[in-house]
């Protein structure tokens, strides 16, 4: 599926369930997302992780509404509980099945996003393998001077920004030396198309999602 269309579908669906308290709609989003994830052969482990991680905030929300609010509203509590999972699965069905580069190409070609945004962001993402080690190094270098930096120390953020400034200059210079010129047209090695099938799926799935929502309004 075209990455931009897929993203649009997921954002619209997520927004729509945010405005309603509709258990069947949430379950439908979860069902479609899980099916899609299985179609993309997601690992059992990843799926288990998706189920486990949101459980604390989801359960916390449930108890707040059901046990502690004055109305003890089970319907709302369970709608909120499942909605958390709907967000997680819908979100994952995009981020686990789409490569950042494919999204960048699609946004560049289909949405005419200026290339500096697409490739600037990608260049930054390219540093990801070094990010964790960098934070460890900053902390250790300071520890060796007797200074303990942690997430509540402004100096940790300051040092991280200094690293970011340095990297951003090196990466930008490298981009320019690889022929990149801001706001100038580029050719496309591969054309990313929006196929009729993509639109059909998007519209089709959105119509299906309206069924439980309209049903709730009618009753």
């Amino acid at each position: 599926m075209n990455p931009t269309i897929k993203l649009a579908l997921i954002l619209i669906a997520s927004l729509e369930i945010s405005f309603t308290y509709n258990l069947p709609a949430n379950l439908l989003v979860i069902l479609i997302s899980v099916t899609y994830l299985f179609y993309h052969r997601i690992h059992g482990k990843t799926l288990a992780w998706l189920v486990i991680v949101p459980i604390i905030p989801a359960f916390g929300l449930f108890t707040t509404i059901y046990f502690f609010s004055s109305q003890h509203d089970l319907a709302t509590a369970s709608a909120l509980f499942t909605r958390m999972y709907a967000y997680v699965f819908a979100g994952a069905s995009f981020s686990l099945t789409t490569k950042p580069l494919d999204l960048a190409h699609s946004l560049e070609q289909n949405c005419h996003l200026p290339s500096k945004f697409a490739y600037g962001t990608l260049a930054a993402f390219n540093m990801l393998p070094k990010i964790k080690q960098t934070i460890v190094t900053i902390k250790s270098a300071a520890a060796m001077r007797g200074v303990n930096l942690s997430w509540w120390s402004p100096h940790l953020y300051f040092k991280a920004i200094l690293v970011a400034i340095n990297w951003s200059e090196n990466l930008a210079m490298a981009m320019i030396s690889h022929g990149f010129v801001e706001d100038q047209p580029r050719s496309a090695y591969e054309l990313v198309q929006v196929k009729a099938r993509d639109i059909t799926w998007m519209v089709g799935l959105l119509i299906v999602l309206q069924v439980p929502i309209v049903w709730q309004i009618m009753n």
């Binding site: 580069l101 490739y119 260049a123 990297w167 090196n170 490298a174 030396s177 690889h178 050719s187």
Partner: peptide, 27 residues
Amino acid sequence: MMFQDPSQQFTLDTPRHEIIFALENLR
């Protein structure tokens, strides 16, 4: 130009993608 730090001179994730990126820039 080739830079001193090998890890801070690529925009994309693989050598093939990087070459494609550079050549798309040259249209």
